[in-house]
Design a protein around this nucleic acid. Structure first.
Lengths: 218, 218
DNA sequence: CTTAAAATTTAGACAAGCCTAAAAAATAAA
DNA sequence: TTTATTTTTTAGGCTTGTCTAAATTTTAAG
């Protein structure tokens, strides 16, 4: 069995490997966990002892098969609970992350199985992230960052990369959400800013925004 | 903010005060928490420092107003989650306690408020225990132990005292549940055993059973 | 290729919660 | 009321997960 802290480290390492490739540095982990490098080293060594990560001193860490399976299971639980909070309890999509961070650690396979059924086996969470199935399989989705689109290309918003409450609230004020149709009207080479159209309204957005919105292009 | 351990101690002390009156002994607490008296003493001193219990060395502990309010809130969460598990996820009443023990520590007032609404503001949990309202008020219920009934008296089962899975499963096999109508057919003075009638079937039950079933007499 | 800087690890401490063993206080028995 | 027993507390340790400060290794710069 794994402690809450161990589970959180595994999840952090999973996300870091996903975003920046395999072999995660101690500092990157410490950063993500909002702790000191020395604390991260301690935990990395413990997780290596437990065979859930492979690790060589000074060389970074990677999840083993077992570690990945644990991490994915936590992510599955997190995302299912987010669906529950939004679909059943009517939370907004920017309010659910912190609560799901707690709920993801509840230990009961039966509970998750029944929750999944109750929610109708959802494929995506409220931010458009795919929900791993009970075997840990994550359906690959073809999605593109809005920042990669050229002038006149368009797509449907299928997810957000950043999912801080602030960013999500920003999107809310612009009526951008999962399912929104977005078209690039103008793109500035110099600073990558864009003018986009969302249901016949046009907005000016910075690179910081376009780099955090995933679209499925049509 | 209170730690998981602190919350569990507060809950234990609340239940002990409820069952056996105010001023709970260190041993009783240690027993309930399945730990050693010395560990209980440590925690009692910490809780006293935090002003959630009043305590004098060698004299036992009692919840302060603040401590009681925290304990009741945890119990409210526990019972609401139990309703959720049974009503929405179709768990059996003997399967929900352990999961609710985990869920009761999730920290979010908003979550509980919405869960309560989602469940339709239930008054009782699946074992017949009253759910405190958001102000901590517990509606007093007039219920009687089956063991207190005399021959030919009857009532409706409104709760169980013991709520271990084993006892609940015992009741299931006899088709006794919340709402069942129970009549005392015969009562043995010597060992307090009884013959009872539940929907035109008669059973023989021991004192151990009748002392753990609450009825509302008609 | 040698030195400076950055990243990482080790050493030693600390708080929370638990433990065992021993001391102290309260209660029961003689 | 004095002694024996039980209850409770204290003392000292252990583990988990954190920290700071110092040592070590790796990487980057000159």
């Amino acid at each position: 069995m794994f402690t809450l802290a161990e589970e959180n480290y595994l999840k952090a390492i999973f996300h870091l490997e996903n975003d920046y490739g395999t072999g995660v540095s101690t500092n990157a982990i410490a950063d993500k966990m909002d702790t000191r490098a020395s604390s991260a080293t301690d935990m990395i060594q413990k997780l290596a002892d437990k065979k859930v990560i492979s690790y060589q001193k000074y060389k970074g860490a990677s999840l083993t098969k077992k570690g990945k399976s644990i991490a994915v299971n936590i992510i599955r639980k997190h995302r299912l609970w987010e669906v529950f909070l939004v679909e059943k309890l009517d939370f907004q999509w920017d309010e659910v992350h912190e609560i799901a961070e707690q709920l993801e650690h509840i230990k009961s396979d039966e509970l998750i199985q029944r929750l999944d059924l109750f929610l109708g086996h959802p494929d995506f969470d409220p931010h458009g992230d795919p929900i791993p199935d009970k075997n840990g399989y994550i359906k690959p989705t073809e999605k593109k960052l809005l920042s990669k689109l050229k002038k006149n290309q368009q797509g449907i918003c299928v997810g957000v990369k950043e999912s801080s409450a602030k960013f999500l609230q920003y999107l809310d004020t612009r009526k951008i959400g999962i399912g929104s149709s977005i078209k690039v009207i103008e793109k500035e080479d110099f600073d990558q800013s864009m003018t986009i159209q969302v249901s016949n309204k046009q907005f000016f957005i910075t690179k910081q925004i376009s780099e955090n919105l995933y679209l499925k292009t049509i």
